[in-house]
């Protein structure tokens, strides 16, 4: 019995609740955890859940902890699919399960900001909001955005470029498009047009998406 088991069960209870279920027996039926009953008993003792008959509910402490785990898990999934372009399959599920236990609160916030505070995971389930997201509503915009999300006329400093092939990277670099350069998005339609210094470039939207910038 460990923290790990507790986290896994908290996560499962959360998703069950999202589906509108609160049955203890149902939960025991679907879980992969061994000794799930024992773990749940201990969780009740520690004040994470309340068990009354077949009904299983979170305490406020338990709910807060579950929310953090879910948030880390789903952000990790987003990170894999968006930044690393991994397919949505069992592999990312497995890796996300690993990630949810090791992400510190600071890193979680950075990941969330980096991804632009995504509202849902790749499977479409909501990602619980974090502190950084609240700030976002007030003043902060995501730190790093794909260049195509800038408004025409806005400027950004290039943070990194994640091209599909090296030739593209090389070619962009000879045009002055490298991390550190400041680009101005001139227009998005009918094609993307950028200004880098005194150079005006027309580019495919697909390439523009691979350039990540910080607004300046």
């Amino acid at each position: 019995m460990s923290e790990h088991n507790i986290d896994e069960l908290l996560e499962l209870i959360w998703t069950q609740q999202e589906d509108g279920k609160d049955s203890l027996n149902e939960l025991l039926r679907v879980t992969d955890e061994e000794n799930a009953e024992d773990v749940l008993k201990r969780m009740a003792q520690d004040g994470f859940v309340v068990i009354s008959g077949d009904k299983l509910t979170f305490t406020p402490t338990g709910e807060a902890r579950a929310k953090e785990i879910i948030r880390r898990h789903r952000l990790a999934e987003r990170l894999f699919t968006e930044a690393f372009k991994m397919e949505v399959d069992e592999k990312i599920e497995y890796n996300a399960c690993e990630f949810e236990h090791i992400l510190s609160p600071e890193v979680t916030e950075s990941v969330c900001t980096f991804l632009g505070h995504p509202p849902t995971c790749p499977h479409g389930r909501p990602i619980p909001r974090g502190k950084c997201c609240e700030k976002f509503h007030k003043e902060m915009k995501p730190l790093v955005t794909p260049l195509n999300e800038l408004q025409p006329g806005e400027e950004g400093r290039i943070v990194f470029i994640a091209p599909k092939n090296h030739t593209r990277l090389d070619r962009l670099s000879t045009m002055g498009i490298i991390p550190g350069s400041i680009v101005r998005l001139h227009q998005k339609r009918p094609s993307f047009v950028l200004e880098v210094g005194e150079t005006t470039l027309a580019l495919d939207g697909e390439i523009v998406k691979e350039i990540y910038v910080k607004r300046v």
């Binding site: 593209r168 070619r171 962009l172 045009m175 094609s191 047009v193 150079t199 005006t200 470039l201 027309a202 580019l203 495919d204 390439i207």
Partner: peptide
């Protein structure tokens, strides 16, 4: 091929 085209003034 990629569309990367410089626009002269």
């Amino acid at each position: 091929s990629d569309f990367i085209l410089e626009l002269p003034p």
